[in-house]
């Protein structure tokens, strides 16, 4: 099958609502969204604490977090695999090759992005925002909430960036998910598998969806970054 034929077949798969293809898209988005639901509050809270609380070793934690931004996802997958495999510390939980394992992996990959971006957003906030909230009698939780609202666009950009990183990552998803059809097969792992089998049509169709998701996320990221600078 030539490239043109494969592309035509891919478009047909997309518009015909092919259940297998859209099932893979569903697994991908479901796993990523659940991972973001866990990672976002944790990452933003950690970023806020790092930005506002002085404690011994804080500088080291910041450097470590920023270093983890570039960590290869396959290494995260390897570490998680070792922890979740039958001989691993958490082997008894029998999580390997499940969506839960994929979610844990994606949370670990998303967290440094969320923490580093949130930290930067909160540190970049006008110091008068906190002082004004304080002077108007706000409690510590209200001050935190106010500050987060004041930098909401920068935080949304952080969320978009983290989502973009985990929705397209393949290394960790393949290692701890196992690419099981209908269960843990997501867009990146399916593209790799179908391409290796020579079934370009499904690979291209999934590639188009992934590209559109990435494009949407990056557009949202650019929008929120622009709003944050205003």
């Amino acid at each position: 099958m030539g490239l043109l034929d494969a592309t035509r077949a891919a478009l047909l798969l997309l518009v015909s609502g092919d259940p297998e293809l859209w099932g893979i898209v569903g697994v991908s988005l479901s796993v990523t969204l659940r991972a973001m639901l866990v990672a976002t509050p944790l990452g933003i809270a950690a970023g806020y604490l790092l930005a506002t609380v002085v404690f011994p070793g804080r500088r080291l934690v910041i450097i470590l977090t920023q270093g983890l931004l570039a960590s290869p996802t396959v290494v995260v997958g390897l570490i998680l695999y070792l922890l979740l495999s039958r001989q691993g510390v958490f082997g008894h939980l029998q999580l390997l090759f499940t969506q839960t394992a994929m979610i844990i992996g994606q949370v670990l990959i998303a967290l440094p992005v969320l923490i580093a971006f949130s930290l930067s957003a909160i540190q970049g906030a006008d110091p008068r925002a906190r002082e004004t909230a304080l002077a108007l009698g706000a409690s510590a939780p209200r001050i935190a909430w106010t500050l987060l609202l004041e930098v909401r666009f920068a935080l949304m950009a952080a969320v978009c960036s983290a989502f973009g990183r985990i929705v397209s990552e393949i290394g960790c998803a393949l290692m701890v998910g196992g690419n099981i059809a209908g269960v843990t097969r997501n867009m990146p792992t399916a593209i790799a598998l179908e391409t290796s089998k020579g079934d370009f049509a499904q690979g291209i169709a999934l590639g188009i969806v992934l590209l559109l998701v990435a494009l949407g996320i990056n557009t949202a990221f650019a929008f929120f970054q622009g709003e944050a600078r205003r």
Partner: peptide, 29 residues
């Protein structure tokens, strides 16, 4: 803190509405 209020030389206004800015301290109380 509930008895004292401070206004900066260049006041900081929250990125919400005029009403929300005025109501902020009342909500805090």
């Amino acid at each position: 803190r509930k008895q004292v209020t401070y206004v900066h030389q260049q006041p900081y206004l929250f990125h919400s509405s005029v009403i929300d800015n005025i109501a902020y301290g009342l909500r805090a109380r």
